Computed example of a mutant assay.
Amino acid sequence: MMLKSGNRMIISVILAGMLLLCCGCTDRASDAEVLLPETVSGDLETVQPDREEKPAEKNSETAEEAFCTVYVCGAVMSPGVYSLPQGSRIYEALNAAGGLCAEADQVFLNQAELLTDGQQIYVPTEEEAETLKQAGDTGTKTDAEDGKINLNTASREELMTLPGIGEAKADSILDYRKEHGRFTSIEELMQIPGIKEGIFAKLKDSITAV
């Protein structure tokens, strides 16, 4: 039985629609296969930078530990607080502070001495140094035999030449000495507020109590 031309046209349209539908499904499946790896790849790229930041933070902490901070004051061009590499010496701290003033005593300090963190470096003028030397001869500044600062006779300025001792701590030492009398040992220095084992360890080799 022969199909009418109208029926043949309807069947052709239906077949064409089914063919297009099949092609569309195939294309969407193909797109899904391509997009899936891109999504996974994107997730991996987002996570990766977090793992790379940790070594940078560790390197930053190591860099901070490689420096010591000191306070340079007295007869220098630019008194202030400076950070220098561990293992630096006093002359390098003086250079960082702009060098010595014209009136500074050039030889009062041992410029080859190693720096310690928190150290105060006081540079006296020639006039001040002469006074300190004379005081040292009478026992005011140091013990004559070993060159150490005598806690029982040192002045405020002399105490401030010690590592970690600034104006406030020097005043506290003088107040303690006035209230309690002579120091019987250098360890007694740790009875003063603000002077604990850390500071004491830095200056114990530079002091005496005679």
Results as ranks from 00 to 15, higher is better:
A135P: 00
K204M: 00
K169A: 04
S41V: 06
L15R: 14
Q134I: 08
D171S: 02
R182M: 03
L21C: 09
L94F: 11
G164K: 07
E126F: 12
P49R: 11
I173C: 03
A93G: 05
G74P: 09
A66S: 12
L36F: 13
L109Y: 06
L174K: 06
T184W: 09
Q119E: 07
K204E: 01
V123P: 03
Q120T: 09
I11W: 14
E128L: 11
A102F: 13
R8I: 10
I165E: 06
E33A: 14
G181Q: 03
G6Q: 13
A104I: 11
S155Q: 08
A63R: 15
F200W: 05
R156E: 06
C23V: 13
S60W: 14
T116S: 05
L151Q: 01
T46L: 12
K58C: 06
I199W: 03
S83T: 08
L44H: 07
C23F: 12
R51S: 10
R182P: 00
R8A: 10
T125G: 06
V210G: 04
A75L: 11
A102D: 14
E61C: 10
G99I: 12
G139L: 05
G98V: 11
S83Q: 11
K148R: 06
L151F: 01
G17P: 05
A170Y: 05
P55Y: 10
D143N: 07
L114V: 06
D143T: 03
E157Y: 10
C25Y: 13
E157I: 06
G136L: 01
P163H: 07
A112R: 07
A201V: 04
K141N: 03
R8V: 09
L159N: 00
A170E: 02
G98S: 11
D50M: 13
M2P: 05
N59I: 13
T116V: 09
C101W: 13
C25T: 12
M9C: 07
E45S: 03
C101H: 13
G24N: 12
L15T: 11
E187P: 01
M1D: 05
N59H: 13
L20F: 14
T153Q: 01
Q120Y: 07
D43P: 01
N150L: 00
P37A: 04
Q106K: 15
I165P: 05
P79K: 15
L36D: 10
P193Y: 12
A168M: 08
A144T: 14
L151E: 00
I165T: 09
M1H: 09
L115T: 04
S12F: 12
F183E: 02
I192K: 09
L115W: 10
G139R: 07
E128N: 11
Q119V: 01
N95Y: 12
E113H: 06
Q111A: 02
K58T: 14
V34D: 10
E145R: 07
I90D: 00
D50F: 15
S206D: 01
L44M: 06
E187Q: 07
